[in-house]
Amino acid sequence: MKKSDSELQRDVMAELEWEPSVDHADIGVAVNDGVVTLSGYVGTYPEKMAAEKATRRVAGVKAIAEEIKVRFASQPKTADHEIAKRILDLFSWNVFVPADRITVKVEHGWVTLTGTVDWFYQRNEARKAAGRISGVVGINDLIKVSEMPMAHDIKDRIVAAFKRQANLDAKSVTVVTDGGTVKLGGSVKAWNERRIAERAAWSAPGVSRVEDNIVVSF
């Protein structure tokens, strides 16, 4: 009886796992109409040949597209699953990142972050941490900031934060709140003052969005 592609894929993976001379952990197996594609990495060229030989032993294999690369121990580990694991490890070590609330997906070096966090700084820290991993070519940040109940004095808190900043004239910045959204207006004398105002707004509890309409007047 002819094997389905999924059955053939399972058998090839089992044979690679059975073969003692092959470390199958970094080898991917895909099957399309009996044609097996091997991808991933191995440590030596003989191991690469052993993986191909093991695949040919499996009944039902019509052809093999062999795309396995030899990567020595000294070379950086930049396979997608390795990048994902290193990002997750970095999240677990970072006290500012709620690792259990963020999902990581890596495809051809592109990292997609999803999930929901309580604070903007947590989202920002997760994005920065993922960007520090070698092999990452880009980040798609889809993390959402949850809308927590905002304190009734949210505007007062933001204004107070403005006043604590030595480089910001609090009177020149206007603050309007609408649910979880904070709208900033007014004018400042430098871009740095605008960044200070926006950072202060994001640090307030319950803020899920900041609309920065502050004008820089030189």
Rank of each mutant, 00 (worst) to 15 (best):
M1E: 08
V58H: 02
I102Y: 03
D5N: 12
D118H: 12
V215L: 13
P46L: 02
L8H: 07
W18H: 12
V58Q: 07
A65G: 11
D118V: 01
T37L: 09
D11A: 13
A54M: 02
K171R: 11
F91C: 04
G179T: 09
E52I: 10
E147V: 06
F91Y: 15
E66N: 15
T44K: 11
D26C: 03
V176P: 00
A54H: 01
G180T: 09
S4G: 13
S6D: 13
G28C: 03
Q165M: 08
A126V: 03
I68P: 11
M148Q: 15
S92K: 14
G186I: 06
V173C: 07
L88Q: 14
I27W: 00
V29R: 01
T37D: 12
T177G: 09
S187W: 02
S217E: 14
R127G: 08
D5A: 08
V36H: 01
A30T: 08
V106W: 01
V36Q: 09
V97L: 01
R71L: 05
G138Q: 12
L38W: 03
M148L: 14
V215Q: 15
P46R: 08
R195L: 09
W18F: 05
N140S: 10
T112H: 04
V137W: 06
D23K: 06
F72L: 14
G180I: 01
I68L: 08
D89M: 11
L168F: 02
I64Q: 11
P149W: 12
V42Y: 01
K48C: 04
M13P: 02
G179F: 04
T174F: 03
V61D: 11
V95Y: 09
D80A: 01
G40W: 03
N167M: 07
R164N: 14
N32C: 13
K128A: 09
D11M: 05
D80M: 07
E52D: 14
E67P: 06
S217I: 13
K144H: 12
T174H: 08
V176C: 02
R101W: 02
K189Q: 12
I87A: 08
K53G: 05
T37N: 13
